[in-house]
């Protein structure tokens, strides 16, 4: 198991374990810091799994409420980040399963801001660093990719997001998903291949 990821909460850097310890000692405001530390990653995990901004926001709220209510169950046997991700992956998987019984998902959220190398911008705005043709192609590929991520089996999507978007190690992912390294390897590899299959038609147009 790799060392817990350090999270930045202003200065100096505070680890999730320290925040959890403060919370257990009665510092209720430590929970706010926990939210601030993890909201970006948890929200993005949720968003990539669901591909719906509002649903992802709702799921993120539920995840943090669950974390709040379960703080007394964190024993320090794993890293706090792993524990948070375990809750998030579990709830995201459940949400996605029920979510998929609903009518078709939007391929792309229209209200979510898009971060580019030039800063946050609306998804539909052209990227000034590329030619109009490239911009159109890039937006199309991104939409296709986001859509196919949300259509992957929940475990594959979660593994892929944690590995390729959030640069977590295989060991951290295995701990968060409560499965073996071999399973994580398989899920990541299959998830990438499935995404590649979806995007291949665009690559070879």
């Amino acid at each position: 198991m790799s060392k817990d990821i350090e999270v930045a909460v202003g200065e100096p850097q505070v680890s999730g374990e320290e925040l959890a310890a403060r919370f257990r000692q009665g510092d209720v405001r430590a929970f706010d810091d926990i939210v601030k530390c993890y909201q970006q990653r948890i929200f993005n995990l949720a968003y990539r799994m669901l591909n719906q901004y509002e649903e992802a926001a709702d799921l993120t709220q539920e995840i943090f409420v669950k974390i709040y209510r379960s703080m007394d169950k964190f024993r320090g046997e794993s890293s706090f980040t792993t524990w948070v991700y375990a809750i998030a992956v579990n709830m995201g998987r459940n949400k996605l399963r029920s979510f998929r019984h609903r009518p078709a998902l939007n391929a792309l959220s229209t209200d979510a801001p898009l971060e580019t190398e030039n800063g946050r911008m609306a998804m539909e705005l052209p990227d000034p660093g590329r030619s109009p043709g490239e911009q159109v192609e890039r937006v199309e590929v991104c939409r296709e990719l986001e859509g196919c991520l949300a259509k992957l089996p929940p475990e594959f999507a979660a593994a892929l997001v944690m590995r390729d978007l959030q640069q977590m190690t295989y060991e951290e992912i295995a701990a968060a998903m409560q499965c073996s390294l071999g399973t994580v390897k398989s899920r990541i590899a299959r998830g990438r291949l499935l995404a590649m299959e979806k995007l291949k038609k665009i690559y070879h147009q």
Partner: peptide, 19 residues
């Protein structure tokens, strides 16, 4: 190419009023 593409997906800001 796919992995590179995934890794370039933008980081989405959560709602400001999430907390």
């Amino acid at each position: 190419r796919t992995i590179a593409l995934i890794r370039t997906l933008p980081n989405i800001e959560p709602p400001p009023d999430l907390l």
